[in-house]
């Protein structure tokens, strides 16, 4: 059953005729995702790869295909508008891959989304995958394997690292959610662990965090009180200097807040096994589950 996406996900791709949008739409289709619609303004009526109808608006795509999820690949200056368009059309799950959306735009989007029933994943994220069923995003599908470990992460390639460790040890994943590296995101670490805690197919959880903000601390506090499943954590950025933005817009220690040390302490306090190095993430969880 997994979390948020599966066999019954019907995907729309906003920006499907762009270079990245087209490339990754194909990647998702090859993986087996049911891509039912594409949206590019002023390109309505075309067919993408002779298979997927392209619409001018998400509203039309939703009305004519019944898409229940969308993957956004539009440039940062138009991405906030694309998210709002999808929410206005009533699309249940919005996955925004776009990196570089201004924070001011995201504050307004977050405020608006609160008044709709849509869920946003991202922005600036690799997407979400339920192995063997549905891939929405840019992650390489072949490194995943169907199974029972839920993975939530603020990073892209670091998630691949952890997933690959699991897969090469014979452990599959229920769902992997890349929540994104921006300071303001739709689905938080806490939201994701709540889904995994409630999912009967998920038997263990990997939580990958990084410096900046307090998302890991909030998730740890909730897990301590509400979840008996084994959890392993890793926090990137123990050696990052304060006050510098480490690639991700959200990865910054400001005013002494959001350090790796504080996050690791919060995880440990909640009884979460913390991996000492990024190469031991899977083993740390497997020991906790043994």
């Amino acid at each position: 059953m997994a979390v948020l996406v599966g066999k019954d996900t019907r995907l729309c791709v906003q920006g499907i005729t762009g270079k990245s949008g087209a490339f990754h739409a194909r990647g998702c289709m090859e993986y087996g995702t049911d891509v039912v619609a594409g949206v590019t303004p002023a390109r309505g009526g075309e067919m993408f790869d002779d298979k997927v109808p392209v619409f001018d608006t998400v509203d039309e795509a939703r009305a004519q295909t019944g898409c229940n999820a969308t993957m956004i690949f539009v440039p940062p200056e138009f991405a906030a508008d694309a998210i709002l368009e999808a929410a206005d059309a009533g699309v249940e799950l919005i996955v925004c891959i776009t990196e570089g959306i201004p924070v001011m735009d995201m504050m307004r989007v977050k405020d608006m989304l609160g008044r709709t029933s849509s869920r946003l994943i991202g922005p600036n994220c690799p997407g979400i995958i339920t192995p063997g069923q549905c891939k929405i995003g840019i992650m390489p599908g072949y490194i995943h394997k169907p199974g029972n470990i839920g993975v939530v992460s603020r990073s892209g390639t670091l998630t691949y690292e952890a997933v690959w460790q699991l897969t090469t040890r014979g452990q599959g994943q229920s769902t992997c959610i890349g929540i994104g590296g921006d300071p303001i995101i739709g689905t938080t670490t806490l939201d994701a662990v709540k889904f995994f805690a409630a999912d009967p197919d998920t038997r263990g959880i990997i939580l990958i965090g990084e410096i900046g903000g307090s998302a890991e601390e909030e998730a740890a506090a909730w897990l301590k009180e509400n979840c008996d499943k084994p959890v392993a954590g890793f926090i990137a950025g123990a050696t990052a200097p304060p006050g510098r933005r480490m690639g991700h817009a959200g990865a910054i220690i400001s005013g002494g807040k959001g350090t790796a040390a504080a996050k690791i302490a919060a995880l440990r306090d909640a009884g979460i096994a913390v991996a000492e190095t990024p190469s031991s993430i899977a083993d740390t969880l497997l020991s906790a589950m043994a």
Partner: peptide, 28 residues
Amino acid sequence: NGAGLAMATMDIIKHHGGEPANFLDVGG
């Protein structure tokens, strides 16, 4: 490649007793 992995790479160098000279993410 990737900011999270770049930070984690600095961390593991330090863990094994080395000192990173930089953070460099060449992107996705």
